[in-house]
């Protein structure tokens, strides 16, 4: 039954968690700062890119995904791809009306 846990009882030490937190705060600062610049549409994509980075940190470390097996990562990917398709395919309608 090794398909699920590579090392699920992995202990992440406090300093590492705090480091992640510091990065998250820095990214929050960055995204607020970027939003003050005048970038036009790039705003949307820029802010989303930063949000994705933050999400990645939370999932990988706070949620221990880095230490999980292939199964959970694959299923998470499946979910995100599904959501992306639901949103993306709707734009086959909206973008060409």
């Amino acid at each position: 039954m090794a398909d699920i846990e590579k090392d699920s009882h992995h202990i992440i030490r406090y300093p590492k968690l705090v480091m992640v937190w510091v990065f998250l705060l820095l990214l929050t600062g960055l995204t607020v700062w970027v939003s003050r610049l005048d970038l036009g549409v790039l705003h949307v994509w820029g802010s989303l890119a930063i949000a994705v980075m933050k999400a990645f940190l939370v999932i990988a470390f706070f949620m221990h995904m880095r230490y999980e097996g292939r199964l959970l990562r694959g299923l998470l990917l499946l979910t995100l791809v599904t959501l992306a398709i639901f949103i993306g395919f709707t734009f086959f309608d909206l973008s060409y009306r």
């Binding site: 995204t31 939003s35 949307v44 802010s47 949000a51 999400a55």
Partner: peptide
């Protein structure tokens, strides 16, 4: 983390 930029920052 996604709500924040979408509603407070994006534009």
């Amino acid at each position: 983390i996604f709500i924040f930029p979408l509603y407070y920052l994006v534009l």
